[in-house]
Amino acid sequence: MRFDVAAYKLRTPQSVQEALAWMAAEPGALRPLAGGTDLMVLLAAGKLPGGQFVNLWPLRELRTIEVTSDSVTLGALTTYSDVQAHPVLQQEFPMLVEAARQTGGWAIQNRGTLGGNIGNASPAADSPPALLCYDAELELRSAQGSRWLPYHGFHTGYRQTLLRPDEIIARLRLPRRRGQRLHCYRKVGPRQAQAISKVCFAGCADLEDGRLVSVRIALGGVAPTVVRCPETEHILAAATSPAALDEAAARASLSRQMAPIDDIRSTARYRRRVAENLLGQFVAVLRLHPGWATP
């Protein structure tokens, strides 16, 4: 046993309000615990610093999925299992569903939450690249009120975020989009299941009236944070026909937006090359999309 359970105090609030009040009273002293799938790993490894934790898991109000005509709003405690089961997410946000399906096994999927995944801020997390492509927004809530931020930009450095010590991630909002959308998600881990990503690619493209109107690309595992790749998006979005998709330029630009490292899980050169190959697959699928205007 590598930890001393007496070093940890877990406080369970009756409501979000109570949790936020505790966090306001002792700024920085309480760390939020959602599904615990990351914290428990650290605990067992003897690497979780002792202290107080606020147990958000029982707060049902943070585990809702609301669908309106323009958005889907997900409580931060929405689990990977919840994501997979939701028909609107299946239909309109398949990359998020796929990411949820490929995260851990069933036990993890029943406990792991989207809010926890974002808050844990691992650059190798599976859902964030999909969320970045879908222009997710985050609601951060404290005793003083709530603020909505675009998810893009929330991660400011390795394991660093814009979350203040008195705030929790309360909800995520995904804008809905009608029309033809291509989704392309691929996680590359060291085995077929129960694996941490080496590289994770999410890309989507919107076509309107036979023309490409927007492209979004995000990567996990290749930089200190998950990254959006605007330069590559612009290169591809400029194409007016499938033949005009400049794969070589897109690959070259992608490389500039990555900063992969060698670590115990993989090598920088492998991550760089596979990310480019995944982009190549995305371009190939985009070329074949039926939404292009026939010349």
Partner: peptide, 22 residues
């Protein structure tokens, strides 16, 4: 993954054995 003669990936998360899927 040896680092200075020590197994650096000393967890089942990082020492990869095949699952039934593999």
């Amino acid at each position: 993954a040896w680092q200075e003669g020590r197994m650096a990936n000393c967890r089942m998360t990082d020492y990869i054995i095949p699952t039934t899927m593999d």
